[in-house]
Computed example of a mutant assay.
Amino acid sequence: MIRRYSFPNLLTWLAPVLALAVAGCQTDSVPGPQSGADYFPLEVGRYRIYAVSDTLWTNFQRTATSYQFREMITDRINDATGQPGYRIVRAKRMLPTDLWRDDSVMFVAATDNALLLTRNNRRSVELVFPVQPDRSWNMYAFSLVDTALYTMNLDNRRYQDVAQPFAASAGGKTYRYDQTLTTALVVNNNNAYGADDDYYRSTYEQVYAKGVGPVYRARRRFSYCPEQVGSCKRSNTRIYKGRTLVEVLIEQGKM
């Protein structure tokens, strides 16, 4: 079935972190397609354009905006640690007729074990290889500050819907992909990043298409009550404050 979308203790914690860090530094080779690396092709000149729906809630008031992001692989370089990878420049425009303006810079590196993304001086584990259904991992294994927050649940990302078709819509057009995988947030009510209860909700989903890369992203963080009020519930259907950010790939190619 095609899914459719519209717009513990310290020692226990350190062991998997160090294991992943060591594994990621063992080789500079690029993993082969059989590992799942072809869900995020890395090639200088490749670009992807996303239609973005951005909705904010403040004091129960909703404000919605739309714009576009373009992510382009501009260079193959080494990061500050000597790890080879690719520089990705993200640009933004409000209307398709506007000029692109650079918004941020990212660095992506693929090892035999993982795909690593560095943004704002923080490295995250976006994918782990080989790709396997229901496999989970700690996205912040390289960030000691972030990982410390996950003492109750080290695995905060997981694979779901591996090698499945997917469809997403934007601007009245539907984009279909035959083979995709989805990474999703592991919900855990004991940490602020993955809570999902009557008062708060935080979800994350990113879909990758084989041979294309990320084709859909959705991040949602809601609070259903003012902090000083503890009697309201999600059944009220009103959002006190929060944000929903949805990105749908609408164009991709190589310059």
Rank of each mutant, 00 (worst) to 15 (best):
V22C: 06
V22Y: 07
A23G: 05
G24Q: 06
C25T: 09
C25D: 11
C25N: 14
Q26S: 05
Q26D: 00
T27D: 04
D28F: 12
V30K: 14
P31N: 09
G32R: 09
P33E: 08
Q34R: 09
S35R: 07
S35W: 03
S35L: 04
G36F: 07
A37W: 02
Y39L: 01
Y39N: 00
F40M: 11
P41C: 10
P41E: 05
P41H: 08
P41N: 12
L42N: 07
G45S: 02
G45W: 02
G45A: 03
R48M: 09
Y50T: 04
A51F: 04
V52F: 05
V52W: 01
S53Q: 15
S53F: 10
D54F: 08
T55C: 11
L56K: 13
L56T: 15
W57N: 01
F60M: 01
F60E: 05
Q61S: 10
Q61K: 12
T65G: 05
Y67V: 03
Y67N: 02
Q68D: 07
Q68S: 06
F69W: 12
F69R: 01
M72S: 12
M72E: 12
D75Y: 13
D75T: 04
D75C: 01
R76D: 02
I77Y: 04
N78L: 10
D79A: 07
D79Q: 08
T81Q: 13
T81S: 08
T81L: 11
Q83Y: 10
Q83P: 07
Y86A: 06
R87D: 06
V89N: 04
A91D: 06
A91P: 00
K92E: 14
M94E: 15
P96K: 14
P96G: 05
D98V: 02
D98F: 06
L99Q: 14
L99I: 01
